[in-house]
Amino acid sequence: MNFHKLIAAGLALAMVPALAACSGGNDAEAGTVITNVSYDPTRELYQAINPAFAADWKAKTGETVSFRMSHGGSGKQSRSVIDGLDADVVTLALAYDIDVIAERTKRLPAQWQAALPDNSSPYTSTIVFLVRKGNPKGIRDWADLLKPGIQVVTPNPKTSGGARWNFLAAWAYGKKAGGSDAAAEQYVRQLYAQVPVLDSGARGSTTTFAERGIGDVLIAWENEAFLAVNELGEGKFDIVVPSISVLAEPPVAVVTENAKKHGTEAVVQAYLEYLYTPEAQTAIARNYYRPRNPEVAAQFKDQFPELELVTIDSAFGGWTAAQKRFFDDGGVFDRISARK
């Protein structure tokens, strides 16, 4: 019966990739392996930094280091670490996501943010506007976003860490302009009423704005805005820096217990400290993040205009409080976006 041969052949064929795969192995990994669980936009950054650190470490100690990189939405990555993803270091978008890991797993100390300089944030960024070339709608500052007919694109703060920075930046402006929380709430309510699409992630919003042609202004991280200008169509967009924004401090931390288990404590500590060296800081600035190192910052000062920046700690009492007040169920964001 031909058919049986057919089945046998089919099964044999199915086994081929499996065998090929098993024998393939992974030759990219040698020596000490560091697992870095990071958020979406840092891929280019760590692609530049990792080999440089590996070379530096090899020169200093003779040890070979290789990396496993995991990128995804900051909140999702944090959940994965909580649920058992074996990260040696986490490099996420906001301190809250690392706080939760510390609180739920006890795999790093609650005071992790004091372990490294500058709140454990080797670089900063801020929230700016991306508008269409020539700024046809004349958008200069936050107030202009409420002009009739302006469509604003920003991701959903319920699902995206980056979107929460955007929301808080808008709130900071509303509070400064109106002088009260009530005025701030009124401002963000009007602002979000002019949002046609709330993508689930920051990069989704950029695509909606840049590729789908939706909206007049995109609220975005500064590094993302630069990336969009340079990679998604040179000469198609302009960056507008508002009068006031938030100081975004994406933090890094060693997941101490995991590093202990893997015996990688020394090397991962050195890895995170390396982020503060002039070499790494230059790579950071080249990837459009604002460097901490004053000399490097001076070198790139044309790229990063100065503006009034509020911090989450001073304006909102830290991430845990801000998360609860604004973004948890029943918080301010739910209130302003509920249909009347």
Binding site: N26, T35, R43, M69, S80, E211, A228, E231
Partner: peptide
């Protein structure tokens, strides 16, 4: 999956990553 590049990324996940990197 945990999205570890080269280790636990399947093809559909790789598509998403590339898309998110604007490598359309």
């Amino acid at each position: 999956s945990g999205h570890i590049r080269g280790i636990t990324n399947t093809m559909p996940l790789h598509v998403e990553i590339l898309y998110n990197e604007y490598d359309f």
